[in-house]
Computed example of a mutant assay.
Amino acid sequence: MDTVDFQLPAGARRIVVAMSGGVDSSVVAALAQASGAETIGVTLQLYDHGEATKRAGACCAGRDIRDARAVCDRLGIAHYVFDHESSFRTQVVDRFADEYLAGRTPIPCVQCNMGPKFTDLFALARDLGADCLATGHYVRRIVGDDDAQLHRAVDPARDQSYFLFATTRAQLDFLRFPLGALPKRRVRELAGEMGLLVADKPDSQDICFVPDGDYATLVKKLRPEAAAGGDIVDMAGRKLGEHRGLVHYTVGQRRGLEIGGSPEPLYVVRLEPEQRRVVVGPRAALAVAAARLADMNVLGPLEGALTAKVRSMAKPVPARMIGDRLVFAVPEYGVAPGQAAVLYDGERVLGGGWIAATEPALVAA
């Protein structure tokens, strides 16, 4: 079996592993136990047990909690479950709904990492006397000359650095990511070699609390006013049609506008929640020259040329920071308020911030 150096301080012997019930965190628990350190598995219950057992692709709930416990039983390590449904609802689910109501495109996975998964788990791990908290995220923690650095995973298809940009320096000192240097294929092989029942378990979906990906229905259930209709207008303010609620639209969207008569394809350029308007325009209107970032988390120097990733599936593009403005070397598309901009120097994560506003490259006459 592969061995992992958990980089424990001298004399340290206790590792707490955040366990979601999936293959990744289960393999981390096995690697921690194989290191010879005392290993404790911890799972946060983030959903109501009855509802959670009905959801396929969720994490930290129902069947997944049972799977985590079964893995710990097989490894002979302790396993604790803590009910954090209330904080998850407040910090992640409610904020998800409020962001859509405000015309922004949220990233609940980042909020979950910033709140229940890291902040709450940190406190629990400290209370349990842990020397580090290990997770199944695909990123690398590399110790530099001065402190620990966050780097992209070796497997680019699994890299999760975009979702972990808000990890603080203090958290990075305590965190360990043993899977960052492994391809997913090898992780599943390890799970099979160790006889873990989750070896072939499917990965969880991106937004684990949204059944079947129907986020609009969830938002309207939590915030009924999100279903209020309004006008679809062009960039000059001329009405082209009507919509059935801002929750159904995101910046860059082309499908589902249900308007005709335009000689060229139209895209959602921006949302105006105060007027309940969807503003559409040609693709050229989506080009963004710069974005203002808020609530920055800095993990490295932001001077000079760097690259920026403005969507989880996007490739990093050349840019530079000027004050709180992220200025792109070439106009970028698909930049939406509410999303995150994550900054890199090669493989190293320099930090990032939330996109608060954008500056168009094309100014309409």
Rank of each mutant, 00 (worst) to 15 (best):
V233R: 12
V27N: 01
K220S: 11
L190C: 04
V143T: 14
R320W: 09
D200N: 15
T105P: 04
Q7C: 13
E264C: 12
R270D: 07
V143N: 14
A102W: 00
A12T: 00
C109A: 09
T3W: 06
A226G: 08
A30L: 10
F163A: 11
D147E: 15
G237D: 11
Y215A: 14
A102S: 13
E347C: 06
W354S: 13
A336Y: 03
C208P: 00
I15H: 09
G180D: 08
A290I: 03
F209C: 08
S87T: 07
Q149H: 14
A97F: 06
P9R: 05
G334F: 10
R277I: 04
R169Y: 00
Y162G: 05
R63H: 13
V71W: 01
F82S: 12
A285P: 03
T119I: 03
E272N: 14
Q149A: 14
E193F: 05
T53G: 06
L306R: 01
H137E: 13
G334A: 10
G261W: 07
N113H: 13
P316Y: 04
R238G: 00
K221N: 11
R277G: 07
D295Q: 14
P156R: 02
L196R: 04
R66M: 13
D67C: 06
R13A: 15
G260K: 03
G351M: 07
G351K: 06
G62H: 08
G252I: 04
C72K: 04
R141W: 02
D212P: 04
L197D: 15
I40M: 12
G36P: 13
Q275I: 01
L271E: 04
G11T: 00
G76K: 03
D324C: 05
E225C: 07
T250W: 06
D200F: 08
D155P: 10
L31I: 01
A157E: 14
D155V: 04
A236G: 15
D203C: 02
I142Y: 11
M194W: 15
G252Q: 12
T90A: 13
L343C: 01
D145K: 09
P211D: 15
A130N: 12
Q253H: 02
D295Y: 09
V278E: 01
P318R: 05
A61C: 12
G103I: 03
A123L: 11
A134L: 07
G300A: 02
T39R: 06
L218S: 06
L222I: 08
L133S: 07
P301M: 02
Q7K: 13
A361Y: 10
A68K: 10
